[in-house]
């Protein structure tokens, strides 16, 4: 029997033509718009079933259905193509401007945008990513989180756990507390280039 199929499943996004196909963590090793995809997906682009852009996330691939097509009709063939493509990770090419820390940064952003971010906001805290390098993330906790040792530990461990799910080779998360006199800064989402 051939190797088992790569586990994938689609989730809805805000845009009905875009589906977020959840794929195994680390399946592709890069994020952003790939500069090349394997043949099964290429064929679908060529046939107009899929439209650009395709965006790779730490644990998902965003695919857009072609104009005039529907996911109901084309979904099964897209799924099969995606699974076939994921079975050949070597045939994907990352975006030209990719760098090593991109995946971890994207994963950190995803965590902040998800439940951990909601949790922090709900408690009146502020969390921002200061640095992403070498499989390690440095975060800063502010707002209600600063000055409260318990919340700091909770937030950090939650953040780390969620981040590790998206990026298993994470070495660690370092947390700093914002000096309480400082006004809370907006959460930094854009990558800082050094």
């Amino acid at each position: 029997m051939s190797a088992p199929l790569v586990p994938v499943h689609p989730e809805a996004t805000d845009a009905p033509e875009v589906l977020r196909w959840v794929v195994p963590v680390g399946a592709l090793g890069f994020v952003g718009e790939p500069s090349r995809v394997p043949a099964p997906l290429q064929d679908l682009y060529a046939a107009g079933v899929l439209a650009a852009p395709t965006v790779v996330e730490p644990a998902a691939v965003l695919l857009r259905i072609g104009a005039g097509r529907s996911w109901r009709d084309e979904g099964p063939s897209v799924r099969r193509a995606l699974q076939a493509a994921l079975a050949r990770p070597q045939d994907w090419r990352p975006p030209a401007d990719a760098s090593g820390d991109d995946v971890l940064r994207a994963a950190a952003e995803e965590v902040l945008a998800g439940e951990v971010g909601d949790f922090v906001d709900g408690h009146g805290g502020v969390i921002e990513v200061l640095d992403v390098a070498d499989d390690q993330v440095t975060i800063q906790l502010g707002g209600a989180c600063s000055g409260c040792p318990a919340s700091g530990v909770t937030v950090q461990s939650r953040f780390e756990a969620a981040l590790r799910r998206l990026y298993p080779q994470l070495r660690g998360v370092v947390a700093h507390e914002a000096p309480s006199s400082r006004r809370p800064r907006l959460i930094q989402l854009l990558p800082t280039r050094h």
């Binding site: 088992p4 790569v6 499943h9 689609p10």
Partner: peptide, 24 residues
Amino acid sequence: ATPALPPPTEPAEVVSWIESVLSS
């Protein structure tokens, strides 16, 4: 809400769907 795309029913495909759903 209804799923944008119904899950597959073919045996090998549905196994991969189940695996993906449980994992995520």
